[in-house]
């Protein structure tokens, strides 16, 4: 590992530039990782611990034990005597700087020790309930279901519609083709934020307000997708399509049986992007959806954190749920994603 870290382009001593480079990378990695890791760790803490300050690093919980003669469980503490000897005791009550404790082996006898001599024992403990509770007690299950629905349907439609348009724009000759292509490309420059008001009015006009289909339809035609697929289809030889025509395939069949399978690599990249886009979408669903049973995860999470702003243990758990699919996709397909972004300048 050290050898790997210290390897330089000069195959010799590290010079100052190398040191600075590695410093930058290490620092950058820390800056990126720490807040995320912190949120993940915190999402596994109990409510009490999430709200305690200063915070503990690892999710823990207090160790409790049952002691004969006491109704409630008592918390276990470590007692460090003045002579350095240590012993585990159960805390009965605390008064001022004195604590009444009991020896767990001899529960009949209680005795008093100074608070400064005892520390509470804690165990590593993952509070998985933070994840299950919101699914059961709040609407998060519905949110996730809605998001999966939007993501899957929108991605399938994105692939179909954009590949069809790309097919037309790369393999046919018809009047106005270039104009249409330019028109589609120009929408690349037109952000949603500029047209969100009238776009919503269109949604209302189509009777799709507060409807998941309203979220889907507005997002499936993407100039990025058309452009990417068109570039790819241009590399498919025209001969192949003509061979299929000679082979009595209809144009639709050529699209379905020849062009689509041959575009599989490009479709895969677009599918990855589409899944990430739709999973993460915020502003547009925020505008379209108004009733909680239609919320997507992002919208639902945002609403939840506005409403229950102190329930950080739930908020963080759901945040992790929201970032998990994207993270898994990225871990598995990072090469395609980074290369796709670098290649086409889309995100």
């Amino acid at each position: 590992m050290l050898k790997f870290l210290t390897r330089t382009r000069h195959h010799g001593k590290m010079d100052i530039t190398d040191i600075l480079s590695w410093l930058w990378l290490t620092l950058g990695t820390a800056v990126i990782a720490i807040p995320i890791a912190w949120a993940m760790l915190s999402s596994l803490k109990t409510e009490a611990e999430v709200n305690s300050f200063p915070p503990s690093l690892i999710p823990q919980s207090t160790v409790n034990t049952q002691v004969e003669g006491y109704d409630k469980d008592l918390s276990v503490w470590q007692w460090t005597k003045t002579d350095g000897e240590t012993k585990q005791v159960a805390l009965v009550r605390r008064i001022g700087i004195k604590a009444t404790v009991v020896d767990m082996d001899k529960p009949e006898k209680t005795f008093q020790v100074p608070i400064s001599e005892i520390t509470q024992l804690k165990d590593v403990h993952f509070q998985w309930q933070n994840y299950t509770d919101p699914l059961e007690r709040f609407d998060f299950f519905t949110y996730i279901k809605n998001t999966v629905f939007v993501t899957v349907v929108a991605t399938i439609l994105t692939l179909l519609l954009n590949s069809m348009a790309a097919f037309a724009l790369s393999k046919y000759k018809f009047r106005g083709k270039n104009a249409i292509f330019m028109l589609i490309l120009s929408t690349l420059m037109l952000p949603l934020s500029v047209i969100m008001v009238p776009a919503f009015i269109v949604i209302v006009g189509l009777n799709l307000a507060d409807n998941l289909w309203g979220v889907i339809f507005a997002t499936v035609a993407t100039p990025t997708g058309v452009f990417m697929l068109r570039q790819y289809m241009l590399t498919i030889p025209d001969d192949l399509i003509e061979a299929a025509r000679v082979d009595a395939a209809s144009e639709f069949r050529i699209y379905w049986r020849i062009v689509l399978p041959l575009c599989a690599p490009a479709l895969a990249v677009l599918a990855i992007f589409s899944v990430i886009w739709r999973w993460n979408d915020f502003l547009w669903p925020l505008i379209v959806l108004s009733s909680p049973e239609n919320y997507t995860l992002q919208i639902g999470l945002n609403a939840f954190q506005g409403q229950f702003s102190v329930e950080w243990h739930y908020i963080l758990a759901m945040t992790v749920i929201a970032l998990l699919p994207v993270t898994i996709v990225f871990l598995v397909l990072q090469k395609y994603i980074t290369e796709g972004v670098a290649g086409s300048g889309v995100k």
């Binding site: 348009a165 037309a168 046919y172 269109v202």
Partner: peptide
């Protein structure tokens, strides 16, 4: 055969028209 291109771009163009071109016009109108 060649005009089938119109059919293939049509769904995309309908959506673009509804959710991009029409809104641009509407934004100005509104």
């Amino acid at each position: 055969v060649q005009r089938m291109g119109y059919l293939f771009v049509a769904p995309n163009m309908v959506l673009f028209s509804l959710f991009v071109f029409l809104p641009v016009g509407l934004a100005i109108a509104y």
